[in-house]
Write a protein that binds this DNA or RNA. Structure first.
Lengths: 235, 235
DNA sequence: CAAAAGCCTGATCAAGTGGTCAGGAATTAT
DNA sequence: ATAATTCCTGACCACTTGATCAGGCTTTTG
């Protein structure tokens, strides 16, 4: 997804914003500094992913991070800046793989790798997925621009490649954009709806075994549905 | 899904709760009464679907319904009661169809009908879908019981039928539970993530044509993936 | 008609909201 | 050592939160 320009950069420290000494950077990235910021970001991700932007209070985040509320505001000028800082990571994470797809590549290989990678991400970064889902459901008020530009471009590029595959009869003629939506939805579902999935399957949490099972299942259905043979699992 | 017992019944009127005259019911279902309640429920659905339980204030709902805040509390004792009242409708709506599925039915017919129905619901009741999604993402704090009991039973029953189809070689051997998850996720995606979908497809809103397109696409991929032939569209 | 029941709402409450700020503590630079 | 900078936080502010309630209004009942 190659997100060069971040949604909104990590906020500069307050002091710098208020009284920026020109020339040398006013705030160094000290160890404590980074550490504290990460602590806040981690706590914020958990809370925002659970209650959305409006539903989360800074006090909640402060409690979770075990810091006084005012300290949050020292590092992040406003609730919104903190929220947006989280999306920097998420957007980078999201589709950075698959960027290098080419028309010459094998459709089955590419799609299988894509599906497995997305399932893996749902497993390794469920909070990011939930946070993103929340934001979209609410109408993407904070990242609308990103969807309209980078994300749309990304989808169109991938769709063009898939269309080329179809033209060359390397796979069945299916709508490429909906295919991308299908892979997104079916994979992210396991992160966003983990409560429902785990409850119905009577599990406490995901395990490696189950993740592989899910990947295999989705590859099987989707690739077959595209008229492709599922490639042997790598490794 | 046959939800006989509602999650929590529509709240009785305050007066009745506080001073229940025994014998005859204290509050009749007058026209105004029902009308007002529906107005509140509609407004509440819109707001809760957008901001979740914690993120929505009663004032917001009151503004949207064009009623004074205190009037909301007249009909619904608490924010939670109002919230739960919404899930009565949703849960009834959700999977009431497909209840009558039998082992003798044609797998392709049943799955195709299921997919089309779910896409249709995403189109006709996007707010219900979003509200449900929000609740699940947040860990289903208010409807956990329902998922653990009725919903789990429902899934198991349907999965048993699918397994029987597989045993009889009427379709490919795929995990029935994951198949249900796949249909849920891929169809609901178009309601929950409508902002993303529409933005990327450069549309203002869904139209009949596009809904049919989506249904056809999902039927094609999923049924083929299950080793089934897509049945001719009814009508 | 009058009495009763149901309907409605402005005013009010304690608790919580995002955000500010003065000033002290800790660290770093000179 | 001393000065400068950065880090931290308790106290505070105006505003919003969910909820209550007294009292007036309207409709139904007898």
């Amino acid at each position: 997804m190659s997100t060069k320009g971040s949604v909104k950069g990590l906020p500069k420290a307050k002091a710098e914003v208020i009284a920026p000494k020109r020339g040398r950077p006013a705030r160094k990235e000290t160890a404590t500094n980074k550490e504290q910021q990460q602590k806040i970001l981690d706590a914020a991700e958990k809370e925002f992913a659970k209650y959305g932007f409006n539903g989360t209070s800074i006090q909640q985040i402060a409690d979770r991070a075990e810091l006084p509320k005012a300290n949050i505001h020292y590092y992040f000028a406003s609730k919104e800046k903190l929220y947006l800082a989280l999306f920097d990571n998420i957007i980078h994470l999201w589709n950075d793989h698959l960027d290098e797809v080419r028309v010459d590549d094998d459709p089955a290989e590419v799609l299988a790798r894509f599906i497995r990678k997305k399932v893996e991400l749902s497993y390794s970064h469920p909070l990011s997925s939930k946070l993103f889902a929340m934001e979209i459901i609410q109408g993407a008020p904070h990242i609308r621009k990103y969807i309209k530009s980078e994300m749309r471009t990304w989808v169109r590029n991938k769709a063009a490649v898939i269309e080329e595959w179809i033209r060359k009869k390397r796979m069945k003629a299916v709508d490429p954009v909906h295919l991308i939506f299908l892979i997104w939805s079916s994979t992210q579902h396991y992160a966003d709806f983990d409560t429902q999935v785990l409850t119905i399957m009577n599990r406490a949490e995901y395990e490696r075994e189950m993740i592989d099972e899910i990947s295999d299942f989705l590859c099987e259905i989707i690739l077959t549905g595209c008229g492709l043979k599922v490639p042997a699992k790598p490794r």
